[in-house]
Design a protein around this nucleic acid. Sequence first.
DNA 1: TATTTGAGAAACCGATTGGTTGCAAATATA
DNA 2: TATATTTGCAACCAATCGGTTTCTCAAATA
Lengths: 106, 106
Amino acid sequence: MRRDVFQAIADPTRRAIITLIALQAMTPNAIAENFHTTRQAISKHLRILTECEVVKQEQRGREIYYQLEAGKLKEMDIWIEQFRKIWEAKFDQLDKVLSTMKKQKK
Amino acid sequence: MRRDVFQAIADPTRRAIITLIALQAMTPNAIAENFHTTRQAISKHLRILTECEVVKQEQRGREIYYQLEAGKLKEMDIWIEQFRKIWEAKFDQLDKVLSTMKKQKK
DNA sequence: TATTTGAGAAACCGATTGGTTGCAAATATA
DNA sequence: TATATTTGCAACCAATCGGTTTCTCAAATA
């Protein structure tokens, strides 16, 4: 199955997992404690995140620590980049309007 | 149905539509010409994009022009923002490693 | 007025999703 | 060694997705 970062972060649970493990790596069990689903459901999400390389595994004994691969999120950032100019331009226009209003007030 | 921006951009066709109409508003027919699907399928995507407020309609006679609401994409940008520090930190570390290697070479 | 054109809505379809329960394998511990 | 713990995997299920075809409606045009 072909997956990408955009699909990976489409699910709210997956986004929550990403935020959760952003600062320190965690095991599936520890992660699952933070959600109202079964451990297996979390395991599935982790599999998807791993396939998309948004997350990295590190085996330690029988435990597996999942760690965020923040760099992969940069791909999204690059896609959004092209639209940043547009919404910033919009705000520039708003600035102009606001400063015009200010001048008129004076 | 509860939808959000993240679901909106999860589909590649939808992302392509967004890029397509970023610079100028377009009608469903005009948009559909750029894809290998029916106009109705595009119409469905436009409905989802409209529900998520990523896109705005402007009726002109019997034609409807779809226009990008770039500001909505900013929501995603804000979510990614929190991870930007992390991947930038990673690259800072890489910089250190590289400069150390450079010094050793000298 | 009759006809063509642009667009959304509805019904349907196969594939995918996110969840569940039950199981098997490997490691840790008594 | 026997048992408990951590994890992934398979099978199943209802809901949703992305697509199609068919239909209706409103606006433009002959």
